[in-house]
Design a protein around this nucleic acid. Structure first.
Ligand SMILES: [Mn+2]
Ligand SMILES: [Mn+2]
Ligand SMILES: [Zn+2]
Ligand SMILES: [Zn+2]
Lengths: 140, 140
DNA sequence: ATATAAATCGAAACCATTTCGATTTAGGAT
DNA sequence: ATCCTAAATCGAAATGGTTTCGATTTATAT
């Protein structure tokens, strides 16, 4: 997806296009791996000396709200984000434990779970989270 | 599963059976919902006034290492644990968003994911995490 | 150009979690 | 039963990622 599309997506949701937001989107779109807020801050300090930590945290959260970034669940329980390249359809992510690369997994076989659970537990299933880990084609 | 089995499991892994460890296992085995370290601390304060926070954190981690508790992934990124009632076979968990009840989901259709990913991404799949959310039979 | 709501700054607060040296305890050995 | 010792617990302080908030700046519609 081109940067312009993400910016348009931002605007459509009522956000203003600011240099820092643009820079963060650009950063993620050229890096296929997930990043922590601290890491984003470091990368931006080149072009924006004195950028505030709080700004980075806020922008990352907003970009996720806008569907541009996704949070990556990590066992250290800290925040990590990556660009989602398929914002429109439900899917999952594969994450390389070595290089942090995030790949889109355009598959969800959750229907089977839902049937199984409804039948066996008599619950109302509302959501599910799936994350796949391993080594990507480069790292394996 | 009976408490004695969990205690035996603890002992087999080289841990000593202490009153606090026992109390924490008992607490979880009568509560089917997940708990935070703070909540565990509060419940234990009745029987163990002056129990230390660090002790609770440490025991919870150890019980997880021993396969007795499982960490629950929560969007607030804080620590939550629940008793795992099927420690021996691979499975997943359903979590009620209202009452926090955790149910064992004795199903995993991950093979399909693995085939799909190996074929499309040429990756080496090593692990996956699945968590299902919704309302349990009581809460729905 | 002007207005103004949104965005950013920056420093401090927050608070869940971790650390570590001192003290106590469980459980095997004598 | 007593002793021994590694393991477990205490407790208070540090840690550090994240959030807060009032002051200042900026994007953008008019
Ligand atoms: Mn995606
Ligand atoms: Mn389980
Ligand atoms: Zn990789
Ligand atoms: Zn429930």
């Amino acid at each position: 997806m081109k940067i312009e599309l993400y910016l348009q997506q931002l605007k459509e949701q009522g956000f203003k296009i600011t240099p820092k937001r643009k820079a963060i989107i650009e950063l993620f779109s050229k890096k296929k791996s997930y990043l922590s807020p601290q890491e984003v801050l470091e990368k931006l300090t080149n072009n924006f000396p004195g950028i505030s930590v709080s700004t980075v945290y806020r922008i990352l959260e907003e970009l996720q709200d806008a569907g541009i970034l996704v949070k990556i669940g990590h066992e250290d329980r800290q925040l990590y984000y990556s660009l989602c390249r398929m914002p429109d359809q439900h899917h999952h992510h594969f994450i390389c434990r070595k290089c942090r690369r995030v790949e889109e997994v355009d598959l969800c076989n959750f229907k089977e779970f839902e049937r199984f659970i409804s039948k066996n537990l008599d619950c109302k299933v509302e959501n599910h989270s799936v994350q796949i880990g391993g080594l990507c084609s480069r790292c394996k």
